[in-house]
Design a binder for these strands. Structure first.
Length: 161
DNA sequence: GTTCTAACA
DNA sequence: TGTTAGAA
């Protein structure tokens, strides 16, 4: 079963459908989480008991509900588990992966200035990664083309800014 | 029909 | 971890 909740200003959640929704949280049950990740409900309960994953705050005897985002964490843990890591190590690796992704995100948001689509058909483009030489007006670009991807140092005109 | 806990394989 | 049981 899937529930849709919307975050209200007071911090409490209400069922969607009463509009006023800004951010909608998708909440899933243990059965769905299990089906979408391939991790058994038994394992999910055990992982939660160990503190590796969290259900959304609820009463003790109520059915578990998870944020949709939790499926990514579960998938990551399963991935490492399948690679042969122990559960504890898998959780560790999954957490490391999450932290690495946060760094990626910060870099992307902070440094990528422009993305130019050069080929709509093949989804090629050029990513502007910023100025490396103010004097000689050079910028570094990440280029995605038929050869894959590579970096390029290019001159840029003042007009580009 | 689904999920819960507890217990045992 | 899987599977079962009985209850909610």
């Amino acid at each position: 079963m899937i529930w849709l909740f919307t975050r209200m200003s007071g911090g409490q959640s209400l069922m969607i459908g009463k509009k006023k929704s800004l951010k909608a949280d998708i909440i899933i049950g243990i059965g769905d989480l299990s089906k979408m990740t391939g991790v058994s409900a038994r394992q999910l309960r055990y992982w939660e008991e160990k503190g590796y994953i969290q259900a959304v705050s609820g009463k003790k005897n109520a059915t578990r509900k998870y944020k949709f985002e939790m499926s990514f964490k579960v998938q990551a843990i399963k991935r490492y588990l399948d690679e042969g890591y122990t559960l504890a190590k898998s959780v560790e690796q999954a957490e490391k992966l999450r932290k690495k992704f946060e760094i990626w995100k910060k870099f992307l948001v902070g440094k990528v200035q422009e993305v130019e689509i050069t080929d709509t058909q093949h989804n090629y483009g050029v990513i502007e990664l910023g100025c490396v030489d103010e004097e000689q007006k050079k910028k570094i670009y990440g280029v995605v083309d038929e050869n894959g991807c590579h970096f390029e140092l290019r001159d840029y005109a003042e007009a580009d800014n």
